[in-house]
Design a protein around this nucleic acid. Structure first.
Lengths: 247, 247
DNA sequence: GTATCGGTTTGATCCAAGTCAACCCTTGCT
DNA sequence: AGCAAGGGTTGACTTGGATCAAACCGATAC
């Protein structure tokens, strides 16, 4: 019988980017060994976040950005009337919290989809160091810009694609990101519910479910609850470019 | 009979942030006089962009970001099959080109909605200077973060709002931005077509037109082609929060 | 003046996705 | 084992916005 752990725990452990196998995906990318050591000095702590708990919430003061070490998160914004829009799903090596810089206050919620661990990167110190380390500065700018480009992709998806195209794009995106992390691009486990996928894609959960079933019927993927196996990667890709060719 | 000017013209004029009445909205915000002078030294040229012409296009190499001095722009991404998604409308004091940082290549098109002028800010030099000038570094980070937050707002709009809510949100947003620039928040001229508004809002132009007509019938706004007068600002706001309360 | 053209409005119909509702899995708890 | 609860699937029906089509308006060109 285990003690209920608090939602967010400082582990006290040093983050040690230099030892981290995610460094090629994360903020240390492109840094020399010596530069990474300086970044290490600044990434003082890790923090565990239990499933369903917030890493930060909208309105909370902004102090740090976070690099995901293990696990995964969703970010969402809420309307006064309770409508939720999931703005993204983040996995290991990705950076959370950039939304907070503009107003010194977080503008969205970041929620762990499974028990997860992040590296805490105090923002003021990151700015200090990136004034000294050019490659860090540049990589940080790239990370922010990548987020902007990603957001534009989501707008494209939400504004111009049909339900099945959206889901195909979503699956292909996940596949690519799992592959980049050394996992199978063809077989993976979804950490989010149909409802959350729907919110992200601007669809209702029933529509997501139907699209999954349709893909399964057409032999594109094998769906078993949250377990996904992509059978016909090219078929999915064609759904995006080709099916789009509808007049 | 005037000579046809080229689409994009270097004017040779110094940009002179220190003299610019937009500096409170733009990159120089929060900088001391001396710091602004250093920024001036870097913002070497202005460039004129004629209506309907690109400031940059998707795929073009990234070298600089741009601050809008006069006029306005749209940014859009295109799908292979020709579908267009407008990702934003930018006005004076706003920064264009941040999408290019991540891959050294622009990922969207920026098109002038009217004859416009931008300040060219060479990016490598901006990074150099922002390593020396803390307040510039911080302001630049805020500008990027603001773009991310804005994008999340658009996702909310595209993913969770109904047609009329989207248009109301759009008008309120324009109103706020005109006000911030010293123009009337209640009466303004749209620089974009119904089709472009539709693309931005994830709607067809007919739907945009119908929503405008409905607002007019309800006495919320007076619409005369591209001329807009907001009659009932609170009514529009309620459309957003209240009408959202529909079960 | 009249023609032309891009953009806008309005009407009539259609359909993709939403809604409502029932049922079916898993998984975890007693 | 049995039950409850939270997801997920599937079906029947509704609807908001898309589509198609026609007319309208305000510019500029002739």
């Amino acid at each position: 019988m285990q003690m209920k752990a608090p939602a967010v725990t400082p582990t006290g452990l040093k983050a040690a980017c230099s030892q981290c196998n995610l460094r090629e995906l994360c903020l240390p990318f492109g840094l020399t060994g010596e530069e990474i050591d300086r970044l290490d000095a600044l990434v003082a702590t890790r923090r565990k976040v239990r499933r369903q708990h917030h890493l930060y919430s909208a309105g909370a003061p902004f102090e740090a950005i976070y690099a995901i070490r293990t696990g995964s998160f969703k970010t969402d914004v809420l309307l006064e009337d309770g409508r939720e829009q999931v703005t993204g799903f983040q996995m290991t090596g990705e950076i959370l919290g950039l939304d907070g810089i503009s107003s010194e206050t977080h503008s969205c919620n970041a929620t762990a989809l499974e028990d997860s661990e992040v590296c805490v990167i105090p923002f003021a110190q990151l700015e200090d160091l990136s004034r000294q380390v050019e490659s860090l500065q540049h990589q940080f700018h790239k990370v922010m810009s990548r987020e902007i480009v990603r957001d534009h992709g989501v707008m494209m998806l939400l504004g111009s694609m049909r339900a099945e195209e959206r889901l195909a794009a979503f699956l292909l995106n996940l596949s690519k990101r799992f592959m980049a992390r050394g996992y199978s691009p063809a077989e993976f486990h979804l950490r989010m519910t149909r409802d959350e996928i729907g919110s992200y894609l601007g669809l209702k959960l029933e529509t997501v479910s139907r699209a999954f079933s349709k893909f399964q019927d057409e032999g594109l993927v094998a769906v078993h609850q949250k377990h996904i196996r992509i059978i016909d990667l090219d078929g999915l890709r064609q759904l995006l470019t080709h099916c789009a060719k509808r007049p």
